[in-house]
Every structure is written in C-alpha cells, then in structure tokens.
Design a protein around this nucleic acid. Structure first.
Length: 373
DNA sequence: ATCCCTTTGAAGGGT
DNA sequence: ACCCTTCAAAGGGAT
C-alpha cells in the first residue's frame, strides 16, 4: 500500500511499514491452532493474563487474516496487499462500532487546526484549547464527530470563539500535512467488523477480572486524553503550543484531563522556578494511538484498572485487527510524525533519553549473569 | 515520590 | 542490514 509509505510517498516519516509482527513466527503453529477449540477459549479466559506468549489472539488474528493465502508474510506485505484490495467500499463498517466512540483527535490544540499556522515560525497560534475543534487527522477517520460533539462539561464550548480562530473542517487535510494527494482517502476500511468476533466472542475483554465493578467506566470516555487533543502549558521554542510539549514537571497525561485543574496546578507552584526546557514527547505510534482510543472501552468492558493488564488485552486486540483497521492507525501515526517533524524539526527522540531513568535496563542485566563480567 | 508493569512501534546508536 | 535500547500512554501496584 503505497501511501503507507513503504519508503515511498513521504520522506518525512519513518516508514510505517510494518515490520513483521514479533509473533509472526508463531503463526506457523497458529495455523495448526486454527482449530481453536472452545476448551482453548475457556483456558484463555482463565489465564489470559499469562498467556500473552501463548498468543491465542494472534492466532485468532491469523484466522481472520488468514483468509488470504499469504498470511505469513511480513506485515508490510500484508498491508501492501490489503491496500490493493481496499477502496472497495467506504462504508467503514468497523468504524460504526461504538468502540470508536469518538476520537481524541477531534479536539486539538491550535497547531493542528486548519487555520492555525503550523509553521514553526508562527507565534500566532492561540494557546486556548478548542473543545470542538476538529483535528485535521480526524478527517482520516470515519469517527463520527458527533460522538464527541457533546463537548465535555469541563471544556467550555465557546473556547474556539475566544481564540477567534475558525476552522474549516472541510478543508483538505493534505494541505496541512503536505500529504501526497490521495494519501488520506486511500485509507478505506473495507472489511469492517464482520470478522470481528475473535475477541468479542471470547468475552468483552477476554480477561480475568480481578476487580469488582466499581470502575469509573463511562467517565473514562469523557476525558480522552490524547496527546494531541488537549493543550498544555508546554510551549515550543517557536511559541507554538503543542501537546507533545510537556512541562518539565512531567505527568502531563494526568493533568490534561481537566484543563482547569491543569492550570490550577501549574499556576501557583514554582512560578519563578527556573523554567526548565519543556519536554517534547515522542509522537505516538500506531499502537499507542489505538490504545488511547480503545483503553476506555476495554476498561469499561472488562472492569479492569491496571494498565498492564489492559495493555495486554489491547495488544491482542491489536493483532486481531484486520489490516485495514490497523492501516488506519498507521496512517494516523504517520501523520503525527509528519506534524511533529514539522513543528519540531530539530527534535530527536534521543532528546528524551534518560528522562525515564534507566528502568528495566538493569533488570535485564540480572537474569543473564553474563553481564557480571 | 518514584518506578514497575505491559503492550507495539519508531528511532537512534552500535556493530 | 541487523540488533539492541529507549521512549511514547496509562494507572494500579510495589517499593
């Protein structure tokens, strides 16, 4: 699929090309597992937490994707092939599912808005956040805007008016991202959810539920904290506020749920403290975008809270997605990278190295004792 | 208060 | 080209 830029297309983003899945090799055995018995399902249900290696889901995914002969190829090839077959119909069945109850991109900082100058040289971008602004990328997705339209209570709906910025949702996205013509439109979900039963069939979550059902649930939906959707106090050196910019204090994701709260927390404390350089975070990859979107749904379905467990589910669901479904997120991620690159041309992922301490590095050193030398 | 966990993908550096 | 490491989100749990 061309526009996924297997090198071609745009030279901005790194190839979204999908390297073969880590567990792609497992698919051999998965083929044997095609006879996925109910007993397996039962086992899975009871031991999903640990069975990420067992990868039933990938097998399930294999079953779904296995409709095509060349199932064991790398994902890039799969994508390529799939996009050859795409563009049949645009009804986007999958997107109609309530699972996509609105996409975070619908609310974005001005830099992402059509009329906002994305050019790094412009400082005129309003810092005020739009509540019902439409992300240019959102046009990529059939997510109905009205899923998000009832603007969250904590986000004043007239904010856009304050900014004096009007957005033209109908404007051509490619204009903002310098995308190759047709790059956007080519993403067309075709297969829809008809083949979705894999996971949902298992259980809504296919997961053991260690928690009682007193979860925030629906409230989680109202705060879709996409990195691109909410404003921050972070400011790009150019003056352009960008969600990727996080105040040195970090923890942006927790604060951004409620802008009011965010402001409150950041107005008084250490005002005169030397303004350390804001951290520009990495653009989200396809899976991260998918997680952001689906996390709330999984939480609601599975009454889970632990992100580690949720992420396991999301990881399996990710593999269970059809190529078309995944392609949507790959494309979004590609555009995020493009935008990120436009906003912060000099930024490097390396800039954030060491910001998270060392984490598991030493952990990995432990098991293998050869590091002891 | 900080780090871990857990997932996939992107990116950078080393070989 | 390939391999390894780190980070991106998330939030409960552990330290």
């Amino acid at each position: 699929m061309p526009q996924l830029s297997s090198g071609g297309g745009d030279d901005l983003g790194a190839n979204d090309e999908m390297i073969a899945f880590k567990d792609e090799g497992e698919q051999e055995e998965k083929i044997q597992e095609n006879a996925f018995t109910e007993r397996d399902l039962a086992d899975l249900k009871s031991s999903l937490v640990n069975e990420s290696e067992i990868s039933q889901s990938p097998s399930a995914a294999a079953v779904r994707r296995g409709q095509h002969p060349g199932e064991q190829r790398g994902f890039a090839e799969k994508h390529r092939e799939h996009h050859d077959g795409v563009s049949k119909h645009q009804d986007g069945g999958m997107y109609k599912t309530p699972a996509y109850a609105g996409y975070p991109f619908l609310m974005l900082p001005d830099p992402y808005l059509p009329n906002s100058s994305v050019s790094p040289s412009s400082n005129k971008v309003s810092v005020v956040q739009q509540s019902h602004g439409m992300h240019p990328l959102s046009s990529l997705l059939p997510y109905s805007n009205d899923h998000f339209s009832p603007s969250p209570p904590h986000l004043p709906t007239d904010m856009s008016q304050k900014t004096g910025v009007h957005r033209h949702q109908s404007q051509d996205l490619s204009g903002y991202y310098s995308l190759p013509p047709g790059g956007v439109g080519q993403i067309s979900p075709s297969m829809g959810w008809q083949s979705q039963p894999v996971y949902p069939a298992l259980t809504p979550c296919g997961f053991r539920q260690p928690y009682s059902s007193n979860l925030p649930g629906a409230s989680s939906y109202s705060r879709f904290p996409h990195s691109l959707m909410l404003g921050h106090s972070g400011m790009h050196p150019t003056g352009i506020p960008h969600p990727a910019i996080v105040p040195p204090s970090g923890k942006q994701e927790h604060d951004q749920y409620d802008r009011g709260m965010y402001v409150k927390q950041h107005m008084e404390p250490k005002r005169e403290k030397e303004p350390k350089k804001p951290v520009i975070k990495k653009p989200l990859n396809a899976f991260m975008l998918y997680m952001k979107e689906m996390r709330a749904k999984v939480i609601a379905e599975c009454t889970l809270k632990e992100s580690a467990a949720i992420n396991q589910i999301l990881g399996r669901r990710w593999h269970a997605l059809t190529r078309e479904e995944q392609a949507k997120y790959y494309e979004l991620a590609r555009k995020e990278r493009q935008l990120h690159m436009q906003l912060y041309p000099t930024w490097s992922a390396r800039d954030n190295y060491g910001k998270k301490k060392r984490r598991k590095r030493e952990k990995q050193q432990d098991p293998n004792t050869d590091n002891s030398l």
